[in-house]
Design a protein around this nucleic acid. Structure first.
Lengths: 283, 283
DNA sequence: CCCCAGATATAGGCATATCTTATGGATGTA
DNA sequence: TACATCCATAAGATATGCCTATATCTGGGG
């Protein structure tokens, strides 16, 4: 028997579905599926009941779980045992504003877990730092770039707003529209340029920095705004979003780091970034 | 990290050499060697010091050993957990006399460990049984045969005996020689036939059944005898052995079992036998 | 003094295991 | 009805492990 299948089992048990386990383990769904079948054959008993909305552990699955955790964690402990407690590699990471809290914390959690005793300091991307999570357009000369996510921006409207009746919204529709401006943001800059080119002016009702506040004001009906198409935004109950017709506003976000002589402590971050990027490309 | 390399580590630690670990794990020596190197790289520390006569664990090796045992045994425990306690498959195994205690117990130990709750009964090979460990020449019709070991027989002499001065001993040298006869034994029969064909007669000083007693008498200087070339015999301090010149006495020992409809409980035994046989062919 | 035996390390070829992509079936949802 | 989600299966590509052969080193025996 193999710990690999045990780890897959753990992820499936905790995630409640095979697909979730695949995402968590950074592998494709069939890998988990077949590994679980093999494990069940090996143990001679079914471990999950499969249904449409996921899987539920059987009696035996519940019994196996704590044992599998035990073995898996013991193995991790062995890995750590001999790592000379690296003297807390300091890494200063510059984070661009409005990154999407959930995906960013997930990435940092994995990075910290995988890296070798990191002392992570988070700063603004303008400050001195070892690497920066920024949009590709803000790259400095001499920096290399590992893409991680790709955001497309959409117009956010209060639910029930008449523009929501259209599938897409054209720039001209924004003329005179109450608008909430967010700054600094490359996407907003792009929109500003396009609007002035088109001779369209909207009413700026507020200027602020964070996406969370912006969403709140949009939901309250203060005005429209431009937001990235993150799942947690698309799912917001009081906000609807529509793509802009003439203008496709996109931004690639990733790790910018000095091109020569990559700091070793950064390597796991770059690997995680690449994994996330390639997973996105596949789907 | 993989339990496979941990198991190899355990075998190397306990065996005191990489080659010994390879023999115990039924794999070739380079497999262990490279796996250990990879494990050391993974943990970032050397685990053994290599020298010509084997390996000795480093400080870290000693620390790793109990942990590796823990993980390996936990994993085995999981394997066993869900096996429905099979209702004690009874297996009657007929054992030919003079098999070589050490290798036979090693085989049986592996068989019991691998099989599924066996109730093993050891009997003489003439009695009714499910399978027999016998020499190939004693096969009954309708039995299939899986070879395990190949024995070549040599003349055993008390150390210091004048015939020991010759590299090989011819049949004629045995004329009048004090001899210890062992029975039943196919090799002895072969020798008896050859002697009578050559018109040579030796003095039979004793007749007995077990190899252990025979060796004792040879060591005591009572006479010579014919014994298989097992390591523990070749290494005996008071006995020297020489091949016979004209007559090569050999015997293949293996599992004899009913050719049709193999009992499932026998399958692990056949697999172990084949593994041992193939390992012998390689060396 | 030379050669052999026994130990470990390395290189190349091969088989198997694992992963990915593509696809189908089933079911709840807009 | 179309769609999204989830699981299972098949087929092709890739990786990993294993084996054979070989090289190096060392101690022992003739």
């Amino acid at each position: 028997m193999d710990v690999r299948s045990l780890r897959y089992f753990i992820a499936a048990y905790e995630g409640g579905s095979i697909s979730a386990a695949a995402r968590r383990c950074h592998v494709a769904q069939p890998s988990i599926s077949t590994a679980l079948v093999q494990l069940e054959e090996r143990l001679g008993t079914p471990l999950f009941e499969r249904h449409r909305r996921g899987i539920t552990p059987t009696e035996e699955g519940h019994r196996l779980y704590p044992l599998a955790r035990q073995v898996s964690e013991d193995l991790d402990a062995i890995s750590r045992l001999f790592r000379t407690p690296a003297p807390a590699m300091p890494v200063r990471l510059g984070l661009m504003r409005s990154l999407g809290a959930s995906r960013m914390t997930a990435l940092l959690k994995e990075y910290i877990g995988q890296g070798d005793n990191l002392a992570l300091t988070l700063v603004n991307p303008e400050e001195r730092c070892d690497a920066r999570i920024i949009g590709e357009q803000d790259l400095s000369p001499g920096e290399a770039f590992q893409p991680i996510w790709h955001d497309s921006y959409r117009l956010a409207l209060p639910s029930g707003h008449p523009l929501g009746l259209q599938g897409t919204v054209s720039l001209a529709d924004l003329d005179g529209l109450p608008f909430i401006w967010r700054h600094p943001c490359a996407a907003m800059q792009q929109l500003a340029t396009a609007l002035s080119d088109a001779g369209v002016r909207c009413q700026v009702r507020a200027r602020l920095r964070t996406i969370e506040y912006t969403l709140g004001l949009v939901a309250a009906g203060v005005g429209a705004s431009l937001v990235p198409a993150w799942p947690e935004i698309l799912a917001h109950p009081d906000v609807q979003s529509r793509p802009l017709a003439e203008l496709e506003i996109r931004q690639t976000i990733g790790v910018a780091y000095p091109a020569q002589q990559t700091m070793p402590a950064l390597i796991p971050l770059l690997q995680l970034g690449r994994a996330a990027w390639e997973a996105r490309e596949r789907s």
